[in-house]
Design a protein around this nucleic acid. Structure first.
Lengths: 187, 187
DNA sequence: ACCTGAACACCGTTCAAGT
DNA sequence: ACCTGAACACCGTTCAAGT
């Protein structure tokens, strides 16, 4: 049911546009409303608070991670990272929203599912509980550093290889097979 | 030089009091100034912005991690985690400040130093680059979940064992010896 | 069902001026 | 050296009222 463009979807899409163009600090209810040619108070008919709206934005960021059904754990982790970095301040939005149990729990479930094909279920769950904080923490730090580097405040680093190495170390520690992931798409 | 209670130190201490009592959302320049019986504008003589002030707060949170010179890597990670969780919203403050290169780089250096006693220097550096995002990410998520649990929004989890397990998996993946850490101080 | 108008109780920051 | 007073340009949220 429901078209692809319900009221909430339009608002979330506008929020992502502001995020990309101006960053989280500029994503205010008033600015978002202006983007939609509406007053800020109108948004409260669709979302009960800014926090809930941000959870919906986080949801959409995470949902954009394209992962094949049978993807290797390392590929799931890389796809999640790409999705977090696809929008300015995306990692921060997802991280700050994740634990509130509002913004779905998809990253953990996808990682656990991928791990479960190589490990007993409880070890797969435990592994996901390690990979999720690593992915979110790394993406958060990487994104801040990338933005600082764009302002010339800091020397740029190759966060991508760094991230992949981390995932491989964790998988090795879990005793899971570390398949060489798809071709290196250095970013 | 400098007494233990310079102007900046007093302000940072007051900020930590507000953090503990009311959380990051209530840590405003106006409230902080009121705590010190001063107007908000006075704070700008000591700190050029709220962001820089928060970096100083993060610095102090991290510096409180008590680690012996010869501590095992796992103990350093646990001490950092304890320091982050010692103040309300502490992990978030440190995480959001860390990458700006303002809030010192101590966690990484301490972990790298501990790892360097068991691994070649470059592997120790690489290991620290994995442990730091894990520690910050895990503490951030754990702290949000703990606070949500206090509000009865979510079932409480034993984040402590979860964290230790993650550290052990990462150390195992690095090929570092995983010493059994000091007595379990389940919290 | 969806939005406006107006208000409430706030923000971070700047800067002349005081002591 | 350190602080006040006053202002500027904003915030998130509520709620009666409109269509």
């Amino acid at each position: 049911m429901a078209e692809s463009t319900t009221g909430r979807e339009r608002i979330v899409a506008a929020a992502l546009r502001i995020l990309d163009a101006h960053g989280l600090a500029d994503l205010t209810m008033r600015r978002l409303a202006a983007e939609l040619d509406v007053r800020a108070s109108a948004l409260y008919w669709h979302f009960e608070s800014k926090q809930v709206l941000l959870a919906a934005v986080a949801d959409r960021i995470v949902r954009a991670a394209a992962v094949a059904e049978d993807a290797e754990p390392a590929d799931v982790a890389l796809a999640l990272r790409d999705a977090l970095l696809a929008h300015r301040d995306g990692a921060e939005v997802v991280l700050s929203t994740q634990a509130l149990a509002l913004g779905e729990d998809m990253p953990r479930r996808r990682l656990a599912a991928a791990l479960a094909r190589a490990l007993p279920q409880d070890e797969a769950d435990g592994g996901a509980a390690i990979l999720v904080p690593f992915v979110l923490g790394h993406a958060s730090l990487a994104q801040q550093r990338l933005q600082a580097a764009q302002l010339g405040l800091v020397a740029p680093v190759d966060e991508h290889d760094d991230f992949r190495h981390g995932v491989e170390v964790i998988l090795a520690g879990l005793g899971a097979p570390v398949a060489r992931a798809r071709q290196a798409s250095r970013g």
